[in-house]
Design a protein around this nucleic acid. Structure first.
Length: 634
DNA sequence: ATCTGGCAGATTTTT
DNA sequence: TCTGCCAGAT
């Protein structure tokens, strides 16, 4: 890798960084000066494209300092991942002008900064809290709501409301009216009452993220000063996974950037739209192309999947979009035998045994680690995990159900929380002899936590000594992993004393909300306790903590954006795919997402005791038409 | 105590 | 679509 420099390079001299190849269309988008909607299939390198474009804009001064780039993602890990790629490729001075946020963090930031300027009707209390929308809350609200004014209807109209549609259509379905006056129906009236009670009754205001998004949009509609400030700040806007954009999010982006000079780049794949039931817009790219005059650009390469899997993928893709472009695989096939197969098994026990054997064999044959495999299910991951775990354990394989709870939060949430990561970082340094990478990572994190200047050598040296001293103490107090819960608590407390709880909370605003900070620490303690139970040393305990040597098991939804050598999809049956007939397009899109996670191999299993395969027959039909074989494994 | 009808949730993100 | 939960009835 070339040294990162902070001086600018000429646009014509700029070259893609740390990547072997970028297809011509991708390069065209990287250098584009107009609004673009980039439609690209799985493995096309959409996130990589955004990272390269950010580097180009920052390093060539096309986004000139002090202007910035705003990148909006849905999930925190997507936002973090993109920021990390830009930091890897750009000098600190450039990367510092790249803001990678989730939609919700962006909207909340706006409400926190400008929300108090909202008109009385819409102004939340300054100390508002985040509410996780829960249907029971809406249910209770509607039940306790009094008689509506006669001109909008009666109690019967209120009781006839479905709570889901109440939220989706009436509460956050439309941009908020400036004067707070509601629409003509009983449902509109109920929504107005909900907003009123959320904003003005009691000591605090409870807002959900979609509500915050709506308030942010209203605010910028009413406050041209704030809007123009954002337009001036951001020369460029990126949107990742654009197929999942909700109306609330799109309206917010429109309120800020429509008609501005900010250049928009949206990337995504409609064929992977599996969040429509959770409010994603039907045809977001069409909207963007119409409203922002975005030019549609397609990418054709697939850097993930082997030619054989890419071929099957294309057959699935055509079921979703008859005009889908035929992607070109840029990866070699590396396995012997069939790339894709359907396994018919007589019972879940036989299935578990067959799969475990396959994983063990394939690990040897193809030189793979447990993390190269994924067990995918449609729903209820825990049920499948319980059946598979003992059978896999007999063959020395661990399964990590990422959706399982430790304390009151899920494992995957825990592992991405900064508080948990900071704990692991410190313990890893303390437990490794050749500290190297892990040491400097820890020092860097500590430095940013303490607000130290990375260029101030004296301050860095002081931090380094401080860390050194603490680590030595930690090592001598706890040379072996501790197992008793009170001991684990003590270790955890020592580490957070050193890191400084107040600074952690200050650096991560999420920890200021309610008891989130304590819940994460509780989860971390509990999980560390369980992870240390059978561990011989700290490294082993931390590996278990992070699930380093376990095969991940997750739902299709959670697997979006990830990739594995081998995808094992368990349970291609009507039971798991109960919603298939309701929305075959979304169902097929889910199937497509699952299939396209694989680099080399896909295995589907079917067990008649779990359900028939009548409804889901179109999916089997697609596999059959692609020449995928079905085998009976007893 | 037990039965039965009705209905919601299942696939999810977010500070 | 199927399961599990709750309320109200028996």
């Amino acid at each position: 890798m070339t040294a990162l420099v902070s001086r600018l390079v000429h646009a014509k001299d700029w070259q893609p960084i740390d990547v072997e190849e970028l297809e011509p269309n991708a390069l065209d988008v990287v250098r584009s000066t107009d609004n673009r909607s980039v439609v690209a299939g799985p493995g096309a390198g959409k996130t990589e494209l955004l990272a390269q474009r950010a580097s180009y804009l920052l390093q060539t001064g096309t986004s000139p300092s002090p202007r910035r780039i705003l990148a909006i993602s849905f999930k925190r890990d997507a936002a973090t991942n993109l920021a990390a790629r830009v930091r890897l490729r750009c000098h600190r001075d450039h990367a510092g002008r790249f803001d990678s946020l989730t939609f919700d963090a962006f909207a909340k930031g706006l409400v926190d900064r400008f929300g108090q300027a909202l008109p009385d009707v819409w102004r939340p209390k300054a100390n508002y809290r985040i509410m996780m929308p829960n249907l029971q809350k809406y249910n209770g609200f509607l039940r306790d709501l009094g008689e509506p004014p006669s001109q909008v209807g009666g109690r019967a109209d209120i009781m006839a409301l479905n709570t889901r549609t109440f939220e989706r259509i009436h509460l956050i379905g439309q941009p908020l009216p400036v004067d707070g006056r509601s629409g003509p129906t009983a449902a509109d009236w109920a929504a107005e009452q909900f907003w009123h009670s959320a904003l003005h009754e009691g000591n605090t205001t409870d807002l959900s993220f979609p509500m915050i998004g709506r308030l942010a949009e209203l605010m910028l509609r009413l406050n041209p000063f704030a809007r123009d400030m954002l337009r001036l700040t951001y020369s460029h806007l990126f949107m990742d996974e654009f197929q999942d954009t909700t109306q609330v999010q799109y309206d917010l982006v429109k309120a800020i950037f429509l008609g501005s000079g900010t250049v928009v780049t949206a990337v995504g794949d409609v064929k992977q739209q599996i969040m429509r039931w959770a409010n994603a817009i039907d045809a977001p790219f069409d909207l963007l192309e119409a409203d922002f005059e975005a030019k549609s650009t397609q990418l054709f390469n697939n850097y993930r999947s082997s030619p054989e899997l890419t071929r099957v993928q294309h057959i699935l893709a055509r079921a979703l979009d008859a005009d889908a472009a035929n992607p070109v695989s840029k990866t070699k096939g590396t396995i012997e035998g069939d790339s894709c197969a359907i396994w018919n098994v007589s019972s879940p026990e036989v299935e578990a045994a067959q799969l475990a054997d396959h994983v063990v064999d394939s690990m040897v044959e193809n030189d793979l680690a447990p993390r190269d495999f994924v067990l995918l299910v449609r729903q209820k991951a825990a049920d499948y995990a319980n059946t598979l775990e003992p059978v896999f354990a007999k063959r020395g394989l661990a399964i990590c159900n990422e959706a399982a709870y430790t304390g009151s939060i899920t494992l995957q949430d825990l592992l991405t929380e900064e508080v948990s990561r900071a704990l692991v970082r410190v313990l890893r340094v303390a437990s490794s002899d050749r500290a190297g990478a892990c040491w400097s990572e820890c020092q860097q994190a500590l430095s940013s936590l303490r607000g130290a200047d990375p260029d101030d050598d004296t301050a860095q040296a002081r931090l380094s000594r401080e860390l050194d001293y603490f680590i030595n103490q930690l090592r001598s107090s706890y040379p072996e992993p501790v197992r008793r819960e009170d001991h684990v608590q003590a270790v955890v407390a020592t580490v957070y004393d050193f890191l400084d709880r107040d600074r952690l909370i200050f650096a991560h605003p999420a920890y200021r909300q309610g008891d989130w900070f304590d819940r994460v620490i509780e989860g971390a303690t509990k999980h560390l306790c369980e992870s240390a139970a059978d561990a011989n040393d700290w490294t082993e305990a931390l590996d278990v903590y992070e699930g380093k040597h376990a095969i991940p098991l997750m739902t299709i939804h959670k697997s979006k954006g990830l990739e594995y050598h081998t995808v094992i999809f368990i349970g291609l049956d009507d039971q798991a795919w109960w919603s298939f007939t309701n929305d075959p397009v979304e169902g097929t899109a889910g199937f497509f997402v699952a299939f396209s996670r694989a680099k080399q191999r896909v295995v589907f299993t079917y067990c008649p005791s779990r359900g028939s395969r009548k409804k889901v027959a179109p999916l089997y039909g697609l596999l059959k038409s692609a020449g995928v074989k079905s085998v009976n494994l007893g």
